[in-house]
Computed example of a mutant assay.
Amino acid sequence: MTMHMSVLASGSTGNAIYVETEKHSFLVDAGLSGKQMELLFEQVGRSMKNLSGLLVTHEHSDHIKGLGIVARRYNLPIYANEKTWTAMEPMIGKIDPEQKFHFPMESVKTFGDLDIESFGVSHDAAEPMFYVFHHNGKKLVLMTDTGYVSDRMKGIIEGADVYVFESNHDVGMLRMGRYPWNIKRRILSDVGHVSNEDAALAMNDVVKDNTKRIYLAHLSLDNNMKDLARMSVSQTLEGCGHVIGEQFDLFDTDAKKPTELFAI
């Protein structure tokens, strides 16, 4: 009994993560068009018609752009907390009431062989939350879109086998870049996005001996680069005593190309 996952797309242009067990499969966020989502599923050899449901982290368009289309086309249940539902309903079109489900923050829902735990993050959305997947003694953590990683969050996410972890920006690139100051201030704030270095410092606090992979996610197109993110995170973690490639591996994610379907 194995859990599989793929980061289908990750970045400021759209986000979607696929998780499956033998009995259930979920799409976390649908931040691309319906057509793009179908192509991404084809690339990992899966079909959206077999999904058990859609999980929503928050209402920003790069996480829900295709949500309504996908839910209606495949008649899928949508799970989100109450404040997120209120915020996103005007943006996703008409959804049948029978497809609407509430998933409160800081709670666990069980779907057969899979337990999904929700937890709050610090981001400028109505009530943003991410998810921990528990299956057969394995733990997968998905966490992007947070301005910082609190001790409470660390307690929930520590000791995962696999992480999808935000590594949004290089602070120097962001400060020197073309964004207006109000946007820079928002990204750097406690309700913005985590930098490469801050991500690595948080990773240092939560990885354990069982941790095998960390996917660096939600990289800014303007204020980061894959090589830079990997180098910065590696240097910080190695400075804390970790050996990348022996203890665990770092993996890139892409805004348009899915990662390989990985068995956890």
Results as ranks from 00 to 15, higher is better:
residue 177 G to C: 02
residue 50 N to I: 08
residue 30 A to C: 08
residue 175 R to A: 15
residue 109 K to W: 01
residue 196 N to S: 13
residue 138 K to G: 01
residue 171 V to W: 15
residue 85 W to M: 01
residue 95 I to E: 05
residue 104 P to T: 14
residue 254 D to N: 09
residue 87 A to W: 01
residue 154 K to V: 05
residue 40 L to P: 10
residue 10 S to T: 07
residue 233 V to S: 01
residue 167 S to K: 12
residue 75 N to H: 06
residue 144 T to V: 09
residue 244 I to F: 03
residue 54 L to K: 02
residue 157 I to Q: 12
residue 200 A to W: 04
residue 188 L to C: 03
residue 2 T to D: 06
residue 186 R to L: 08
residue 180 P to F: 04
residue 135 H to V: 11
residue 210 N to P: 13
residue 29 D to I: 02
residue 115 D to E: 07
residue 18 Y to T: 13
residue 62 D to P: 02
residue 189 S to E: 00
residue 138 K to L: 04
residue 46 R to K: 15
residue 112 G to K: 12
residue 189 S to D: 00
residue 261 L to E: 05
residue 199 A to Y: 00
residue 134 H to I: 11
residue 178 R to W: 08
residue 70 V to K: 05
residue 16 A to R: 01
residue 171 V to Q: 09
residue 24 H to F: 12
residue 73 R to P: 00
residue 141 V to C: 14
residue 192 G to P: 10
residue 44 V to W: 02
residue 113 D to H: 10
residue 186 R to N: 01
residue 142 L to H: 13
residue 245 G to M: 15
residue 213 R to E: 13
residue 23 K to F: 13
residue 155 G to D: 08
residue 228 L to E: 08
residue 62 D to M: 09
residue 52 S to E: 09
residue 248 F to K: 07
residue 205 D to T: 11
residue 197 E to G: 15
residue 167 S to H: 12
residue 125 A to Q: 08
residue 114 L to T: 02
residue 78 I to E: 07
residue 161 D to Q: 13
residue 43 Q to E: 14
residue 154 K to H: 14
residue 241 G to L: 03
residue 17 I to G: 00
residue 141 V to H: 03
residue 8 L to R: 13
residue 76 L to T: 00
residue 195 S to P: 15
residue 20 E to M: 10
residue 209 D to R: 01
residue 39 L to H: 07
residue 96 D to L: 07
residue 8 L to Y: 06
residue 187 I to E: 02
residue 240 C to K: 11
residue 128 P to K: 14
residue 10 S to V: 05
residue 191 V to N: 09
residue 233 V to D: 01
residue 106 E to A: 06
residue 170 D to A: 11
residue 196 N to L: 11
residue 168 N to Q: 07
residue 78 I to C: 14
residue 219 L to D: 02
residue 151 D to I: 08
residue 110 T to A: 13
residue 4 H to Y: 08
residue 171 V to C: 12
residue 231 M to L: 06
residue 101 F to R: 09
